[in-house]
Simulated scan of single mutants.
Amino acid sequence: MSGTLPLVFSVTSGKGGVGKTNISVNLACALTSMGKKVVLLDADLGLANVDVILGLTPQYNLFHLFHEGASLDKILMETPYGFRILPAASGVSEMVSLSTGQKLELLEAMDVLEDDIDYLIVDTGAGINDNVLYFNIAAQDRLLVLTPEPTSLTDAYALIKVLKIHHGVERFRVLINMVRDEKAAKEVYLKLSNACDHFLSGVSLDLVGFVPMDKTVRQAVIGQRPFVATTPGAPASLAVRQAAERINKWKAPHNVDGNIKFFWKKLLFQERSVA
């Protein structure tokens, strides 16, 4: 994919505690092992923890971009697993809601990456606050992570509803995490799909896969390492690799849908060239 537009997808959720960041980290690891160049952006700007899950201590983060003029190259951090992260700050109230100027500043800064990566994974916060909605709109694809818990299902629907009604987003990918088996995962997916069919006309949901309950996941989190690296043969690791293989077949869109996107300059250029 090098030399073309990178594929940007968010990993998002309606509620916290569904394992969204852990999925983001392990997908980054799995895609990297497939020979892809990956950057993981920690877009949970006020409660960042991608670096914690990886056991890393970044010297710089996105706070330094917005408030101290640091370059993206200075903030980008290599991980032991071959992908890079763009860490955010934790417990910094100024990062909870970005201004319009800061959003554009981030988009401009990202330009240095567009010819150097295959995937930009955007790990959003949970819920429907301004930052979560913004990063989901700015991504080309959205991977919605949920669990079998009723509250997770309800909140996932709420996020879809807001993005559809207020921002015109209609396509979502779905991954069911911490589920008993495939049958249970499909039941959760059908519940969400049926709710969208009944109340949100035009929404498209694509089941990317499921990650089963697996004790190795908790062990890896405690050890601050990706489980696909520590226990590659475990059920959760195999499931994430399978999801990564499906993601690797996604195609970057060749048009602008009206919302500002990451690497929007190249998108606009491509659209004008086609026109």
Rank of each mutant, 00 (worst) to 15 (best):
Gly223Pro: 00
Ala138Asn: 08
Gln219Phe: 02
Lys37Val: 08
Asp116Gly: 14
Leu5Asn: 14
Ile165Asn: 09
Pro80Met: 07
Ser33Arg: 14
Val203Trp: 14
Val52His: 12
Tyr81Cys: 07
Lys251Gln: 15
Gly125Met: 04
Asp130Ile: 06
Ile160Gly: 08
Lys191Tyr: 08
Asp44Thr: 03
Arg225Glu: 12
Asn136Asp: 12
Gln140Cys: 10
Thr100Ala: 15
Lys251Gly: 04
Thr151Gly: 13
Phe66Arg: 03
Gly125Pro: 12
Ser10Trp: 00
Leu267Glu: 13
Glu182Tyr: 08
Asn129Met: 07
Val256Met: 10
Ala126Asp: 05
Pro212Leu: 06
Ala89Asp: 07
Leu104Trp: 10
Ala139Phe: 03
Leu153Cys: 06
Leu144Met: 12
Leu205Phe: 11
Met95Ala: 13
Asn136Tyr: 02
Leu56Gly: 07
Pro212Lys: 03
Ala126Gln: 00
Ser273Ile: 09
Asp42Tyr: 03
Pro87Thr: 05
Thr21Leu: 07
Glu94Asp: 14
Arg218Asn: 07
Gly55Asp: 07
Met95Phe: 12
Asp141Cys: 09
Val39Ala: 04
Leu56Thr: 12
Gly35Thr: 11
Val174Phe: 04
Ala126Ser: 15
Thr4His: 12
Phe227Arg: 04
Ile176Asp: 02
Phe227Asn: 08
Val132Leu: 06
Thr124Gln: 08
Gly168Asn: 09
Tyr189Leu: 02
Val112Ser: 06
Leu76Asp: 01
Ala185Ser: 08
Glu68Pro: 00
Ile165Gln: 14
Glu68Tyr: 01
Ser204His: 05
Pro58Arg: 10
Phe210His: 06
Val96Lys: 09
Asp118Gly: 05
Ala48Met: 10
Ala70His: 03
Lys161Trp: 04
Thr124Met: 04
Pro253Ser: 05
Gln140His: 15
Val11Ile: 13
Val174Ala: 02
Pro212Phe: 05
Lys191Pro: 06
Ala195Thr: 06
Leu133Arg: 13
Lys215Trp: 00
Ser93Gln: 08
Gly19Asn: 09
Leu106Ala: 03
Phe210Pro: 00
Pro80Tyr: 05
Val174Tyr: 01
Thr4Asp: 15
Glu108Lys: 15
Thr32Asp: 02
Ala234Lys: 01
Lys74Leu: 08
Pro6Arg: 02
Lys186Gly: 03
Pro58Leu: 10
Pro232Met: 13
Val145Asp: 00
Glu187Val: 14
Ala139Gly: 01
Ser10Pro: 06
Asn177Val: 05
Leu143Gln: 05
Val228Thr: 15
Ile53Lys: 02
Ala43Asn: 07
Glu182Trp: 05
Ser93Phe: 02
Val38Phe: 07
Val211Tyr: 03
Val112Pro: 01
Gly202Pro: 02
Met1Phe: 11
